[in-house]
């Protein structure tokens, strides 16, 4: 199972794609970081792969 992540460019916190997708737009979960992270920050190829196989990423 391919695991896709995105790293906050400001604080370096790594966020799994399932977290980004469920929020679509979110404040970075790094403490006191104000950066806004978006599912759209992932590459188009990564987003398409995630959406195609989305059921794997849900418990």
């Amino acid at each position: 199972m391919r695991i896709i992540t995105h790293t906050c460019p400001v604080c370096g916190t790594v966020v799994a794609a399932n977290e980004l997708e469920s929020n679509r737009v979110m404040k970075c979960p790094g403490l006191n970081c104000e950066e806004v992270l978006r599912f759209g920050d992932l590459s188009e190829e990564a987003r398409e792969h995630f959406i195609k196989t989305q059921e794997q990423y849900q418990i």
């Binding site: 199972m1 695991i3 992540t5 916190t13 790594v14 966020v15 799994a16 399932n18 977290e19 469920s22 979960p29 790094g30 403490l31 990423y57 849900q58 418990i59």
Partner: peptide
């Protein structure tokens, strides 16, 4: 910090 979100297993956590 690495945000895994959903608890998808130890191997998923490692993969993140």
């Amino acid at each position: 910090y690495i945000i895994q979100g959903n608890p998808l297993g130890l191997a998923h956590a490692a993969g993140c």
